[in-house]
Design a binder for these strands. Structure first.
Lengths: 339, 339
DNA sequence: CTGTTAGCGCTTTCAT
DNA sequence: ATGAAAGCGCTAACAG
């Protein structure tokens, strides 16, 4: 670990100047082939690798980006992270993964440290509604794209599905299956995404003339355990929901868990629809009816958008704001309610 | 983005030298309270935040570590990553997440770039057997700990479960349930971890005097789809396995998927045992019988070990090599075979 | 207690 | 086509 070999050592060994070494490392066009070879040989013999930190300081580019998610344990985020990281590697970027555990304080702390570490850009997959730090980033022209979220800001870049519509699709499906007592695992409306899904749920209810029932709705933090408990308790009530819509597949899994623990058969005695279409949802052993979003495409787009933001010279361009259409996929957790 | 405010600007505004600014930033003990305040005020007014890249270059510490996993989509890795990242944040470290997609080439590429970016240390959760780059790191005294893997090297640090024994426990359980035709989803033995599990499976078979049947064993890459296809095909054979042991819960899920797609009832017509005890395994809707490892504890230990390796002055200490005991948890995917 | 100074290992003009 | 030299924004002796 002592006495790192620097570009100077290479230069000395090759009998050239350090700047020439730098030039061959950066593939400059006009270098005499013979000196290039000398340098390459010296690099090889010394086992030299360049110091990216020094490079970053000098060039003010780090070739690393930040990815902020609420919970990497949620398959939707893990599956998205996988394609983002993979695509980033292809383009020679590394990613610092930030897991906020759904705490807004952590979100802000992470934004702070990421900026301190001079990342070239940030993808935020769990964006809190009206967060000042996020807006600041936009105002400063810092490269940032929202994934799975929408922000009303003229400079905002985002890739998302129409969450409002997705939620409506879910409720609509349940309604068509003759369900009128529709439980809802909402999650906190502090997130843009869940907020929109909540609005969609409400709108659908209203449209179908179904009364709003506070007792049927879970609006607290995303906590598997708490959702599990909530569902279990609700399922004990005489006038219980005949079905549940969960604002994420992970929460739908908690509902299934609770139902199974009480020996309530799905879908015969309880219908469940999720949101996200995680890989597990299509596992035949589970077969979760859910709202799908084109994760792979979205994640790819998010990364590409961020990189073009980073590398584009002219930032005079219009922001990239993409909203894709959700779709309901019917599988084995929903069925007609016989009354 | 132009004209960053540097510590010099702060110094000027506060009427002190730049090194004094550096001192208050680093909480040096002997600073006059009044000058400290002046500096703090100037920092506040200018909205200064220090450049961690420059800091890293000067101090040769980056306060970022690398975490290498084979597939972040595998809940075992996601759950481990969550605690590692959380613990790291507590200790003021960030983590660059590297997803190799189970390619050894990627593993080596990532080790290379992580070293280039001068991370303070690396946790490898998917270590290839006999990999030269990994051994090099140890030889160089680079801080590195293996998670869920064991390496025979006197300087190696690792935290793992006894994988050999875990596999034996699984087969033993199946044998006690009167199963004699035991299918095995092994995964590639290029990984230390899977290699050890494979050895355990073999040993158990031998112990019980069961003949080795190549057709019952999947030893190729970790690919959900391929495992699914393999299982489906095998299940069609007249003399099919009456049960499966999968070297990871994720692969067990693929087996369940395949079984469900053929309407084969679990556990009545097929028993399945996994390995890892991912959170989903204890979901009542699934209830996967599996081999448990204390993930949380292991991940915490791995991170702490790495940090102490990084921050310890004397590296003369003996390596940290921890092997924990696995345990079988019986749930709903295994039952007695009636012949 | 605080200022001065020399790096850390590169990139990037500016000359030649 | 290549060398010299000035940073990038800090840390860390060394003085005083």
């Amino acid at each position: 670990m002592k006495g790192r070999i620097s570009a100077y050592d290479v230069a000395e060994k090759a009998g050239v100047s350090q700047s020439t070494v730098s030039r061959v490392l950066n593939n400059y066009p006009h270098i005499k082939e013979s000196t290039k070879q000398k340098v390459l040989v010296a690099i090889e013999e010394l086992g030299f690798t360049r110091d990216e930190i020094a490079r970053s300081l000098a060039s003010s580019k780090t070739r690393t980006i930040g990815l902020i998610v609420g919970d990497i344990t949620n398959p939707f985020f893990a599956e998205s992270a996988k394609v983002i990281i993979g695509k980033a590697q292809e383009m020679n970027y590394d990613v610092i993964l930030c897991n906020t555990n759904h705490s807004e304080e952590n979100l802000e702390k992470y934004i702070q440290t990421l900026k301190g570490k001079r990342v070239d850009g940030i993808i935020i997959a769990s964006a809190n509604k009206d967060n000042k730090r996020i807006k600041e980033l936009y105002d400063q022209g810092f490269p940032i794209v929202l994934y799975n979220s929408i922000l009303k800001h003229q400079k905002a870049n985002y890739i998302a599905v129409n969450n409002y519509k997705g939620a409506k699709l879910a409720v609509e499906h349940l309604y068509r299956l003759n369900h009128r007592q529709i439980g809802y695992i909402a999650g906190p409306s502090k997130y843009i995404t869940t907020h929109l899904r909540n609005e969609g749920y409400k709108a659908a209810l209203q449209e179908f003339g179904i009364d709003w029932n506070d007792r049927f709705i879970y609006e607290k933090e995303f906590s598997y355990h708490e959702v599990y408990q909530f569902t279990k308790k609700l399922l004990d009530e005489p006038n219980r929901p005949t079905c549940f819509f969960a604002a994420s597949d992970q929460m739908a899994l908690a509902v299934l868990d609770a139902a199974a623990s009480k020996n309530i058969k799905v879908p015969e005695e309880l219908s469940v629809v999720g949101f996200d279409d995680i890989d597990l949802a299509q596992n035949c052993y589970i077969g979760l009816t859910t709202i799908t979003q084109p994760k792979e495409k979205m994640a790819k787009l998010a990364l590409e958008t961020l990189i073009s933001l980073i590398e584009k010279k002219d930032d005079a361009e219009s922001p990239i704001q993409i909203v894709l259409e959700p779709r309901l996929i019917e599988r084995n957790t929903t069925s007609y309610y016989l009354g």
